[in-house]
């Protein structure tokens, strides 16, 4: 088993990147790998409340995010400086079980994993 960290840095709808990252994380979870997701930079927009993706004909992200624990995804990390820079706080997020991390903690996280998936 390898420890996989998926780093997702793009906003939820403009490209397929956010969705692709979530699919990869869910696949890793289904494959019994120890996988975690880190949202940073524009990626933090994926986690905010009150999104209505159906207005854009996209339904995936919220459902996929909700499925993360069911697929055994170990942890969702959110890069605090990216949140702060966008005027967001923990209260802005629709996920409860997230862990906010600093730059230093992200460095440690990367070191604790065997493989990085960059999205």
């Amino acid at each position: 088993m390898s420890r996989i960290l998926c780093i997702s840095r793009h906003s939820p709808y403009q490209t397929s990147s956010a969705c692709d990252a979530l699919d990869a994380v869910l696949a890793a979870g289904a494959f019994d790998q120890e996988v975690s997701l880190l949202l940073m930079n524009e990626g933090v927009w994926q986690a905010i409340k009150n999104q209505q993706a159906s207005l854009l004909g996209r339904t995936g992200i919220g459902k996929k995010m909700a499925a993360l624990p069911l697929f055994g995804v170990k942890q969702v990390y959110i890069h605090t400086p990216s949140l702060t820079q966008r005027g967001l706080t923990r209260d802005s997020l629709h996920l409860d079980a997230v862990q906010l991390v600093t730059n230093n903690e992200v460095r440690t996280l990367i070191q604790q994993h065997d493989q990085l998936l960059s999205f």
């Binding site: 696949a27 790998q33 493989q115 998936l117």
Partner: peptide, 20 residues
């Protein structure tokens, strides 16, 4: 094939590199 093929390959590889 499915995304499982990415995970399976990555888990037995020394390195995974993404070209974004």
């Amino acid at each position: 094939s499915g995304l499982g093929q990415l995970i399976a390959a990555s888990s037995v590889s020394d390195r995974t590199i993404t070209f974004g």
